[in-house]
Nucleic acid binder design. Sequence first.
RNA 1: GUGGAUGUAGCUCAGUUGGCAGAGCACCUGGUUGUGGCCCAGGGGGUCGUGGGUUCAAGCCCCAUCAUUCACCCCA
Length: 418
Amino acid sequence: MAQLRRIKGFADLLPDDCRVYAHMEQTAREVFTRYGCQEIRVPILEKTELFARSIGDETDIVQKEMYTFADRKGKSLTLRPEATAGVLRAFIEENLDAQGDDAVKLYTCGPMFRYERPQKGRMRQFHQINVEAVGQAAPQLDAEMILMLTMFLRQLGLTALTLEINSLGCPGCRPAYQDALQDFFKGMHKERLCEDCLRRKLTNPLRVLDCKAPGCRELVAGAPVISDFLCPECRAHNDTVLSLLDRAGQDYMLNARLVRGLDYYVRTTFEVSSRDIGAQTAVAGGGRYDGLVKSLGGPDLPGIGFACGMERLALLLGAKQAKPVDFYLAVLDPRGLDPALLLAQTLRRNGLCGETALEVKSVKSHLRRANKLKARYCLLLGEREIETGNVEIKNMLDTTQQTIPFENILAVLTPEEF
RNA sequence: GUGGAUGUAGCUCAGUUGGCAGAGCACCUGGUUGUGGCCCAGGGGGUCGUGGGUUCAAGCCCCAUCAUUCACCCCA
């Protein structure tokens, strides 16, 4: 019989992995809370239309990467490929703007799904930590979100990262830039632009800027830059954001070719990347999406958000050690099994952390196990102890050892001691 | 969707011109009548991804297939 295996691009996160993921989530929670963010959890399954409308029909995500299927009544549903659409849907549906706040800041984390070929740092099911801030168009919010992201990453101990920033303009000024780009690419011969870009220059000329083909990069170097086309409002917005980052001591690089893959971004876009995790370098990315909430049927509110890829952060973080435990209870005589379990229960009721042996073994083998668990104390319960009503307590760190009456254990093993 | 690489013990991997299936780590036991880590000795574990083919003989050569992985693409 063939063994059942996990499906392609879906990973089991084992205990060693989960410690790292829990650490990321805990750090995010702690840092984001300082900024007034609150947690929200939304379904991972939504109507297909939600993603098609928000992410953009022309994007690769919608065209070929979504897990879409019909439910039992024929409704088209999709496993979320990103979090923003679902969070904003909830924001609208639950009237979260009715609180009278300047901006509603929400974070969430969980699995996302994209049907792509897996490779290093790219899974079909992957995990993101996501933040959305809705209700404010002020550039100060852009700066705050970027600073919050970098504080989070620094708190995780990650420093060898690059922050890149760009402005994509707004519906007012971007068309002029797109026209200029199209003009620029119009005369380009097939030998110079790659196949994809020949198509892109008509459908979404901004994407050509992001192409990694050597020929295209060469060409793009001479292409018009968005900053020359920004309207006065976008320019002022961008200047304020950059100035605030400067004054906050935040390093960054301007990247006029930074174009994000989702259609809804306007003005500020940003990306954090690493060279140390393979070909997929982006660890976090986001931008402003004024207009998106309205286009999803909500009030006309501006917003900005970002996502962090947890798999990619995990590649940078490395393994996290298992925590030591307080005790391990070794049983050397069958009559000790019941008392051991009850004793362990008492210790745990008092806040201690540890395990009890479930079968009788040699002292040596018990101590080896205690050592492996990194137990601070190994309690021994054998024939001698049972007959005298004592327990032998061995301190695993300094190897000292004492015999004490069963009922006095808590006097020795107090939580304060740890 | 396209291209490359790799599938041998729980893990990481050796395996020569085709000739009895190996190491390190991990695990278990012992070295101490009831004392861990270090050290020493011993031990358990493998349909060599799967199915065909060539051969006296295949882990090794050929074909197919599945899986994994890296990259393109795209993105977190």
